[in-house]
Amino acid sequence: MKIGKQTIKFENTPKILQTSSIVGPKEMQGPLANYFDQHIDDVFNGQDSFEKAERKLMNDCIDHLLAKVPTNNESIDYLFGGDLLNQCITAGYSSRDLGIPFFGLYGACSTFCESLALAASFINAGYAQKVIATTSSHFCSAERQFRMPLEHGNQKSPTAQCTVTASGAAIVVPKDVGTQGPFVTHITPGKVIDMGISDMTNMGAAMAPAAFNTIMTHLQDTGRNANYYDVIATGDLGVLGSEILVDLFNKEGIDLMGIHADCGALIYDHDKQDTHCGGSGCRLHGKCI
């Protein structure tokens, strides 16, 4: 049911039954290392290209998820997945190997939330019983597609962020299945808000106004205050983007300090790991509502 301007309320509150995550070596050196299910030590992941490495990352992540539930790929109704690469090749090839009916998504940094929102919509509507939402990103393959070759000797801006090497997956089911797991109660898809930031090494500042708009609209649509939530998590605003978001809320008289958490700012130890303004990428958002 649509409520307010752009929020959807799920009457049947789909459940996130189980999640799975796998990360690269740099993420394992970060402060969140204990929370990941699996990790790889080599960015090539035993493959001969970074693209194949990323594909294996996603495959391993989904295999692990199926083992955790436990279930098999035949009993999964649909797969919602995406990544950062051209033609979503990672998710495309992964679904080929899995043989699950597949929706390919591209929302860049928002892909995980997008896939989770759509998976939950399918469950809420009763179109499916088991749906997987998944994403992946790989530092080396993203760097090559969007920026400079890895060996190129250039300097990065202090506001630059670092794409995480990781894949995550969640299985969404109707609320009466299983005993554990958080529920998806509302989704508020955001608008594209462009405040004219054209510096590609400052993505946090480019995305912060849209995050502000989406969260604010969500609060208005649901009639809730920000302190209704224990945590309001954003994907990859990074250190600078998070400060801007908190500032923007302050201007409206809302204090987000202590409530807001940004996955991109949390995943690395910025002083030690030389990641400038933190992480970015599809899989950053392990969001609990």
């Binding site: 405040m195 004219g196 106004p209 604010m216 609209t217 208005q220 923007l248 201007k251 409206e252 809302i254």
Partner: peptide, 13 residues
């Protein structure tokens, strides 16, 4: 509560 950022592009920049 206003969901729009109350700044022009130049002010924001």
């Amino acid at each position: 509560m206003n969901a729009n950022v109350n700044m022009t592009k130049e002010e924001y920049s």
